[in-house]
Design a protein around this nucleic acid. Structure first.
Lengths: 229, 229
DNA sequence: ATACAGGCTTCTGTATACAGAACTCAATCC
DNA sequence: GGATTGAGTTCTGTATACAGAAGCCTGTAT
């Protein structure tokens, strides 16, 4: 009976779910979707009342938001939504390129046949979204594909860094840039083929070129000042 | 008079210095130097009393320690000093190699003559420490050299990631590994020459080989189980 | 009219208080 | 004798209370 129970109840029935986590998620969401604008002063008491909790969990969430780079915590003044400079955005793109390249190299070494199969499925989803001109689905498919490659790479430290950098890149560029189109997904296909062959070097090279093109694509739109509307 | 004042008082006379920061520094120090052992349960009240503050700043410091990977915060149980696995250590080394390589490439592109001069000074310090067989000075010189290269690279995002990863690598390997000797500093010299010439590609390649050799060096000592005594 | 000074308000930083969950250990029942 | 269940204890998670600093506004003096 004991074995049966452990097999069935691998996870606790209820997860306590600390409030600070919920607050953290809520605030990142508000920052990413633009409800909280860069530079805005976040007053603890206001947030607390708005979210229906006390100041304590709000403070803890703000602490973490600072170390993750979403807000700046000025001593004795409080939290301000971080204002990314163009320079910082460029630096983020550079770092992301390096990390994604490494991720692709590792993935090519580690990928099992079922992983490759899954990659092609994700790729197809992206192509479909592209055909349907569904921007939201397209962005989601792109994120999912890159995230899966990272998970195949099997380096948790790397995965965490990529996740953090990637989210900030999206935060900064989503309001001003449309996603790349057909050529990006052709590059994805090349990448998957290299991974399938286990060709680490080529996978890295393809990913490097891919992220560099994406970087250039973003920069061009930023310079042109063309929003997505 | 006003300009004179603004020029003189660019910085506030007294910085409030939040307690949480002091607590954070104290705890990282205790973790890195081994006073707090991996897996150990950190009780908020104990730490608070020991440091002479209330639980609140301690909690805030623990939150940040978690996001920085020094402790694990189990819900409803509290903080435990993180126990790095061998796998995680290997992943850290891999990521560090990639980041340092990128750092060297950027540094080669950005370095000004006075930067190169400074690099040679730091190199000399390392060579001196090596000649004096002063392990502590040697480690410090190595850290200083790499840190300065990163600062020359001029990418703040990158610098922050390298700092975080590097500190954890040192935490994990310092107790079990001696620093590398003469050959490491010869490699440093090659690296500085490449940076001085502005040869980004070569600088990256030298750094990649350098970090890979360091990685192998650590792994060997780990496998042999030979401590530093 | 303008510049400075003083008080007032607001918000952060820190401390304390209380409720609930998890672990411990002992007593009880099979 | 061994497993189990229950009370007791400890610690976290959350809320509230209080002190001090920073900014703002007003009043006054030049």
């Amino acid at each position: 009976m004991r074995e049966a129970l452990t097999a069935a109840a691998t996870r606790r029935v209820t997860r306590p779910a600390p409030l600070r986590q919920a607050v953290y998620d809520a605030l990142t969401e508000l920052i990413v979707n633009g409800s909280l604008k860069p530079g805005q002063h976040l007053v603890e008491a206001e947030l607390a009342e708005h979210l229906g909790v006390s100041r304590q969990p709000v403070r803890e969430a703000l602490q973490r938001l600072q170390t993750d780079g979403w807000v700046d915590l000025r001593p004795a003044q409080g939290a301000f939504v971080h204002s990314p400079t163009e320079e910082e955005a460029a630096q983020l793109l550079g770092v992301r390129a390096v990390l994604e390249t490494y991720s692709a190299q590792l993935a090519a070494r580690q990928a099992k046949p079922e992983d490759v199969e899954r990659l092609w499925k994700l790729h197809q989803e992206g192509v479909d979204a592209l055909a349907a001109s569904d921007v939201e689905r397209l962005v989601a498919a792109n994120t999912a594909l890159h995230a899966f490659i990272t998970s195949v790479a099997g380096n948790a430290v790397l995965a965490e860094l990529i996740a953090g950098v990637g989210q900030k890149v999206r935060w900064y560029y989503t309001p001003i840039a449309r996603p790349r189109g057909k050529e990006a997904w052709n590059e994805h296909a090349q990448l998957i083929r290299a991974i399938a062959k286990g060709d680490s070097e080529r996978a890295g090279e393809v990913m490097r070129k891919h992220t560099e093109r994406t970087t250039g694509f973003y920069r061009k739109q930023l310079a042109a000042g063309t929003g997505q509307d």
